[in-house]
Amino acid sequence: MTAPTEGRGRPEPLGRAGIVDGIRRGIGPAAATAVFGAGFGAMAATAGWGTAAPVTFSALAFSGTAQSMLLVSSAAGLVPAVAAAVLVNVRHVVMSIALNDSLRGSRWVRALHAQALVDPSFALAHRGNGQFDRAVLIGASIPQWVAWVVGTVVGLLVAPGPDVIRAYGLDVALPAFFLLLAIDEARRSRPAVAAALTGAALAAAALTVLPASAALLVALAGALVGLVLRHEEDGS
């Protein structure tokens, strides 16, 4: 083996094994994403958005929270609706900054790879110590993207009512995956347990006065416990 390439801007090829591993691990969250996508498609059908707009939106935005927010707030006018849709995803700015050290290649290549950033992939790609596997990040997002677009189309065609989704507990799949991924993270180290508990407490407190999207941003501040706790990652 040669010495590990340290240089930024020297694009090393994406590991095929990592991509395949990511695809495999992304299939579970993708199943939940498909249900969420069907919910978005059904809402878009009810709102009279036609077919092209919701499918294009899902394919290019790939963001359930932002898309749902634009959908429900579009009656308020262009500027408030777009502002709401962007604000629900401000956490991705913080997550993108966290990812940057683990990306490789030129600034634009890294910006392109960062487009794979969605919440489950961010967690699945985390290797500990703030290092992320970019191949797993991209791989895990592939089945989720397909599921999101296909789910949107199915939702537009079938338009299952919210009652059907709730009666079968389909809406629980996504929070359940988030919980299990949180447990995976908490198993890494004591600071991770502290960050998860702090994030949960901050989100709960914030929810009493702020909308859900802002509460998520506040939850991210739970990671700041890393500044006061001694780091003892079990990476070895």
């Binding site: 050290d101 993270e185 991770a192 998860a196 994030g199 739970g222 890393g226």
Partner: peptide, 12 residues
């Protein structure tokens, strides 16, 4: 270090 804890805080 903070970046490494972001996933745990966000998921919770």
């Amino acid at each position: 270090v903070v970046a490494g804890l972001a996933a745990a805080a966000l998921l919770a």
